[in-house]
């Protein structure tokens, strides 16, 4: 909208003040995967006595930590 009239309007400023990064798309993985019940709604294989339903969902915590850490490192300024 305002683009045509302000060609000189502080490009440095806009680069500094944006947070758009394609790395952010990675965050969709830990939002979507834990919601797919068919992946983990099983008893076997068991791990240390834990049915798959439980240990797989514990693994999702690790998945969440890994992706948020990657996105943080890649988008840090």
């Amino acid at each position: 909208m305002a683009e045509p009239e302000s060609p000189e309007a502080v490009p440095a400023e806009t680069i500094k003040r944006t947070d758009h990064s394609s790395w952010n798309w990675l965050l969709l993985i830990p939002i979507v995967v834990p919601l797919l019940t068919p992946i983990y709604n099983h008893d076997s294989p068991r791990l240390w006595g834990f049915p798959a339903f439980y240990w797989i969902q514990f693994l999702f915590i690790l998945l969440g930590v890994t992706t948020t850490s990657i996105v943080y490192r890649m988008t840090r300024r």
Binding site: L27, L28, P30, I31, P34, L35, Q57, F58, F60, I61, L63, G64, T67, T68
Partner: peptide
């Protein structure tokens, strides 16, 4: 558990 996993990326 899934609830408190998906909350942080959000």
């Amino acid at each position: 558990v899934p609830y408190t996993v998906i909350i942080y990326p959000m």
